[in-house]
Design a binder for these strands. Structure first.
Lengths: 111, 111
DNA sequence: ACAAGGAGTTACCCGATGGTGAGTACCCCT
DNA sequence: AGGGGTACTCACCATCGGGTAACTCCTTGT
C-alpha cells in the first residue's frame, strides 16, 4: 500500500502540500495522464507504462482509489473478472491542476 | 544534498512529474510560501518553520537554488555574512501553479 | 572571558518508496 | 494437456528522504 502517508497535523496547514502528496509517486501522474483517454484495465495500464511492476501498479492504483481520485469498476464478462480504473467526478476536478503542472513542466524542459 | 534526484530518462516524458519533483519535499512548499512576503535569511526561515532541522533546511534550500527557483543573496554587513533567499524571476513563474495546487488542496480539505 | 546568534556541517539512523522474482487463481482457446 | 490472458499477491531488497545530535566557524555584546 502506498496510500496517503501519515497526516502529521503539522503538515496539514500547507494546502499545496496536501495536493502534492496525492499525486506524488513515480507513476501517478502518468497513470492519471493515461486515463484522460477514458478508463483502462490493469493490463492496459501495465502495457502503457513500460517498466512498472504489477506490485507498484497495484500500490499506486489503490492509493489513487483510496484517495478518491479514481474509481475502480469491476465487471464480469462471461465469468471473467475485468477490472477497470477511471476518474471519479472528484478526481476530474484535479485535471486542470495537473494541466497547470504539465504546462509549466513543458516550459521548464524548454529552458 | 537533496537536489533533483536521478533524472531517469524514462521520467522525463511526464511534464507534470518534472514540476512535482521540483516542489515535492516536506518543506519546500512551505519555504516557497513563506518567501512570498519577500526574501528571508536562514535563521528567519528556521524560525518560521518550527520543526525543521538546519540540515534539512540547507538541503531543501540548496535544491531549490540549484533548480533555479530561488536565488541566494550573500551580503556582508561589517564583516558579518548575512545570507538570504528569494525567488528568482524564473521561480516566480511557478507561483500561479503553486496557487492552483493550494486552492485545490483547500477545497480538498473542505471535503 | 564567555555567552549568544548567524549559518551552516558532519556522522549516523530509520521508515517509506519503489523494484525483483516468483507464485496464485481463474478462464479461454487449440 | 498446454499456452496465454486477466488480475493480482508475497517475500525480500536497495535506495532515498527526512530526522537527531553534536560540532564548526565567525562576530558582537556584557
Amino acid at each position: 500500500m502506498v496510500s496517503t502517508p501519515g497526516f502529521d497535523a503539522k503538515m496539514i496547514d500547507c494546502p499545496a502540500l496536501v495536493t502534492i502528496q496525492l499525486v506524488s509517486g513515480k507513476w501517478k501522474t502518468r497513470i492519471l495522464w493515461h486515463l484522460r483517454h477514458g478508463e483502462a484495465g490493469f493490463g492496459e495500464l501495465k502495457r502503457a507504462l513500460p517498466g512498472i511492476s504489477p506490485k507498484v501498479l497495484t500500490d499506486h492504483l489503490d492509493a489513487l482509489v483510496s484517495d478518491g481520485l479514481l474509481k475502480r469498476l469491476e465487471r464480469k464478462e462471461k465469468n471473467v473478472v475485468h477490472s477497470a480504473y477511471d476518474y471519479s467526478d472528484y478526481g476530474r476536478t484535479l485535471i486542470p491542476v495537473l494541466d497547470a503542472l504539465g504546462n509549466w513542466g513543458l516550459s521548464h524542459r524548454a529552458q
